Amino acid sequence: MQVVSISSLKGGVGKTSVTTGLASAALAAGIPTLVVDLDPHADASTALGVRPGDQLDIGRMLKAPRRARLADNVVPSGWVERAGEASSRGAAAPVLDVAIGSAYTGIYDRPDLGRRDLRRLSTVLAGAGHYELVLVDCPPSLNGLTRMAWSASDKVALVAEPGLFSVAGTERTMRAIQLFRQEFAPGLSPAGIVANRVRSGSAEHSFRLAEMQSMFGELLLSPHIPEQANWQQIQGAAHSVHHWPGDSAKNAAALFDSLLANLMGTGRTGELVSAGTVRNRSQR
């Protein structure tokens, strides 16, 4: 089982979109996957089409992690029904479960969590052994919830737009991961950086992508994910990108297939390739 945190210290870069895109690729590939919606806004739960019943949300599981029965409280994604054709042909039924997000998790989104609190998610995920992949959608901060996710993870995938503030935030996050590894999680490594919402005709985006390549080297994952006009429509309909009609969605699905393969198959050293300062365009 691989546990991967999807993180960004800057909001609005499409972190949840990347999480759900990777979940869609995992479902299409038949990889038994759990999505942990750790963001108090619970946008991933909405996009994954969950229909909660009496199950505990992830915040309440974190409150009593030793008593939480993960298998009894996860909810199948609504996407699974649309992926059921494979099982009707005799293959194993697809698995994409969700640990539902809620505002209750916000009580842990503090900067002062101790080591015991940081282990809460690890304790909950001790019951997740039948999944091959766990994706943790983190809030856009370096407070307690993100650090709790990092403590439970094997890898951290960072999401960034090719813009000045996002690239600078990514550099700070890389350094935060290194410090966190040294103090709390020596086995943690960066899975890489996902460049999201890339506009192919933008000179600024081209410049920032080149800057990211020089700063982060092989940690900048490929392929990059382009800006997609209908992404809000796909998420609002609670569909996976692999089951949305049209060439645009088909192309995006193929990109997430490749990104998932790179994310799961590549080990990273966790060191910045360059410690160069992010440049303002006026410095060029």
Rank of each mutant, 00 (worst) to 15 (best):
S151T: 12
S189N: 07
R147I: 06
F216A: 05
R199S: 09
G163C: 08
T146N: 06
R181F: 10
T146S: 15
S222A: 13
S214Q: 12
P226M: 03
R172C: 05
E161D: 11
F184K: 10
R172T: 09
P186A: 08
A149F: 12
I225F: 00
A195I: 13
F184D: 06
M148E: 06
Q228T: 14
R208Q: 08
A210G: 11
G217L: 05
A152N: 08
H224T: 10
S206P: 00
S202D: 08
G217F: 10
E161T: 15
T170H: 04
R199C: 06
Q232V: 10
W150E: 01
F180D: 09
L219E: 09
S214N: 07
S153T: 08
I225L: 10
S200T: 14
M148F: 03
W231M: 15
S206I: 02
I193V: 09
D154C: 06
G187F: 03
E211Q: 14
M212K: 12
F207P: 01
P190D: 11
S166R: 00
M174K: 03
P223W: 15
E183I: 06
A149R: 10
T173D: 01
G187E: 13
L221D: 00
P190W: 11
R208Y: 10
L188R: 08
D154S: 09
T173K: 04
E227F: 13
L219V: 03
E211V: 05
D154Y: 03
E204F: 07
E218T: 10
N196K: 00
L220K: 01
G163A: 14
V156I: 12
T170R: 08
H224I: 07
G163K: 12
S189R: 15
A168L: 09
T146H: 10
E211F: 04
Q213R: 15
V167M: 09
L188S: 11
S202Y: 07
S200I: 13
E227T: 01
A160Q: 03
E218P: 03
E204N: 02
A229W: 02
W150P: 00
F207K: 00
P162M: 01
A195S: 08
S200A: 15
S206H: 12
I177M: 12
Q178V: 06
F184C: 07
A149K: 11
W231Q: 15
I177R: 00
S202I: 03
A229H: 11
E211K: 04
V167G: 01
V198C: 07
E171D: 13
G192F: 12
L219W: 07
A185M: 09
A157D: 01
V198E: 09
D154M: 02
A191K: 13
N196C: 04
S202V: 02
G217D: 12
M148T: 14
I177K: 01
I225V: 07
Q182N: 05
G187I: 01
Q213I: 04
S200C: 04
S206Q: 10
W150C: 04
K155I: 01
W150V: 06
Q228S: 11
V159K: 01
S206R: 15
L158V: 09
G201Q: 13
F207Q: 07
S151K: 15
